[in-house]
Nucleic acid binder design. Structure first.
Lengths: 133, 133
DNA sequence: CGGCTTTAGTTGCTGATACAATCAACTGGT
DNA sequence: ACCAGTTGATTGTATCAGCAACTAAAGCCG
């Protein structure tokens, strides 16, 4: 827990300095970027993010206000939205990437061996996928 | 990050239900409990916790208001305090422990092999000890 | 001693999050 | 075609955390 908080704070600090984005916001952009071309539904986004439903709503609002993402009403479900990166959002992400990767390396990845990285990925992936009800 | 957030939320939820304590508050009690008998300084406590200075001040205030910890002026440094568990705090911690350990097992430890646990402890310990400036 | 710097801890303020309640749209059985 | 129940998402409210500025006690050094 301590490691995760310290790393998260360091990444957050660096991102805010270098890109004016929160770690959570940047993470959302990254997830949306890797989603299908037609966009991603907030519910699916939530499963991959560290936010709850309401937190996600607010974060999406902010990103939309910044013009980094766009939302359309889902054609097959009038309740839902489809979120996509705007051109500005894609650009932001691309420009931010180098600094961000350096930050991840410096604050986290460089401290681990390859074997450890693999073990962590597996083990924590399983933990994250578990049911925490 | 996702794993840590999900686990933290699950532990927090269980603790609040079962003991009326936040995960952060419970963590502070646990750290103080393992500290030297004469008490622990807020600064030292902060290094082991996930809180910042100001967050720690507030959390300590809450725990003191609940009567779970007591603070004395440090005899060798008039600026500082020495924090100790009260009898009530020790009791709280003892009574909370079984449920808490179960929660940790269910939400985290049970998903890992012994080798993985060992690797995580080492690797993340190193990450936490690193300088995140 | 006496002032300058550093360290310990607190406080005002702001922003972000979560929970719970709510609104809106879809779905399935009759 | 309708209504009950479910699911997707938003909003009201309260809390908590963090930053930055501040106070006060130590430490250092001439």
């Amino acid at each position: 827990m301590l490691a995760s908080v310290l790393v998260a704070r360091a990444l957050d600090r660096d991102l805010q300095r270098q890109a004016g984005l929160t770690l959570a916001e940047h993470h959302l952009l990254a997830i949306i970027n890797e989603a299908a071309a037609e966009g991603i539904r907030p519910t699916d986004l939530q499963l991959l993010s560290t936010l709850t439903k309401s937190g996600l709503t607010r974060a999406v609002d902010r990103l939309e206000a910044l013009g980094l993402i766009a939302s359309h009403v889902c054609p097959t479900d009038g309740r839902g939205q489809l979120l996509v990166l705007s051109a500005k959002g894609r650009q932001k992400l691309r420009r931010t990437a180098p600094d961000f990767f350096r930050s991840v390396a410096r604050n986290f990845a460089d401290h681990l061996t390859e074997r450890e990285t693999e073990t962590l990925t597996n083990a924590l992936g399983r933990v994250a996928a578990a049911d925490h009800a």
